[in-house]
Design a protein around this nucleic acid. Structure first.
Lengths: 188, 188
DNA sequence: TCGTTCTATGCAACTCGTTGCATAGCAAGA
DNA sequence: TCTTGCTATGCAACGAGTTGCATAGAACGA
């Protein structure tokens, strides 16, 4: 149930509604954790029922009212307890790697367009991360000295940047390999 | 249902029992896809029922009999169809990144031991991958010229190696950040 | 001989995550 | 006015994945 913890962290960084959380999971938090709005609404409701979160109705002008959630004392305690527990080092779920190995039993060259598409997506993500880094951390408008929360957000973002750079370099390697196989071993 | 496809690829590379597949998912295939034996047995049964796999009972000496699965014609067709479909670029699920951002609301320095532990695990994985690469691809006993399947296995392994190297470098960055925060901003 | 470990397969229950659908207010433009 | 799109919340059903447990033959060492 790390989604619970990701929500607690996000709400500690800034209280917000389910809808706002869902959008954060498409952006900053979503760089390393994904969730759909249905999942978020369900978990928010459960956590509120368990007393981990406070809610308050916020009327809005020009748009529907929202429920703004914030972390209650017990929620903070739950997060602190989790922070002191060891967790399993992450393991990957990489569909594309399955496809690449599977391509040996089909036409390797047919994968080139798919890999190029992934290459573009990761290039876009990298550009997006770098823009965010300039805006929030290294650009002229970024506050200094930054506090612990910002420093930690920055080091996580640097991880995302390193991940995208590594992935792009690897996809170049994959493309070179597929091209080489296409030349030397045409498909049956 | 990419587990289905991962199983098809693994069985095309080499037929095997559910038990053997489960061990492969702790090793080579498991570098980029994980599955428990329960999941595997269940999926094997379903795929066999759907005619995607063939089974054959193999009596063994000194150990229990096993059921050896191999890919049937329709299974190959299902895999080929999947290979020609586009898939979503992968997204991460990185608990440790959640913890790192969460540490801002607790004691950042308390995370150091956990991060060091992950650092060691990734160092071990890297060493393991490099040993496998020497054994199967770059060492003196490795066959040359390699076929397409081996080339593709190798490029996926290089991806795993690049991932571990990137992760280790990032964890160094994280540790430096946590140490810095521990010095300049002692916990409340 | 007795407990442990490894091979080998499986059920049942549960939780997590996804997909499809539904509602509703308001804004903006055709 | 009518459609489209954005904000905002939610249900129901399904599928994927985890956890705990159970069985059983054989090897191996204490």
């Amino acid at each position: 149930m790390a989604l619970d913890h990701a929500i607690l962290v996000s709400l500690l960084e800034r209280p917000g509604s389910g809808y706002e959380l869902a959008r954060r999971f498409e952006r900053s938090i979503g760089y390393f954790w994904t969730a759909t709005h249905q999942q978020i609404y369900r978990v928010l409701k459960r956590m509120e029922g368990d007393g981990l979160l406070d809610v308050r109705d916020v009327p809005q002008r020009g748009r529907p009212d929202k429920k703004e959630y914030s972390v209650a004392g017990p929620g903070r305690a739950v997060l602190a307890a989790w922070l002191h527990e060891p967790i399993e080092p992450e393991s990957l779920r990489h569909d594309l790697a399955v496809k690449i190995r599977g391509a040996a039993f089909d036409d390797p060259a047919a994968l080139i367009h798919e890999v190029e598409r992934h290459h573009r997506v990761h290039g876009d993500r990298l550009a997006h991360y770098l823009a965010g880094e300039r805006r929030d951390f290294t650009g002229p408008g970024a506050p200094s000295p930054p506090d612990a929360a910002r420093e930690l957000q920055h080091v996580v973002l640097r991880g995302g940047i390193a991940y995208e750079r590594m992935t792009i370099a690897w996809l170049d390697d994959v493309l070179a390999t597929l091209h080489r196989l296409g030349r030397t071993a045409p498909p049956a």
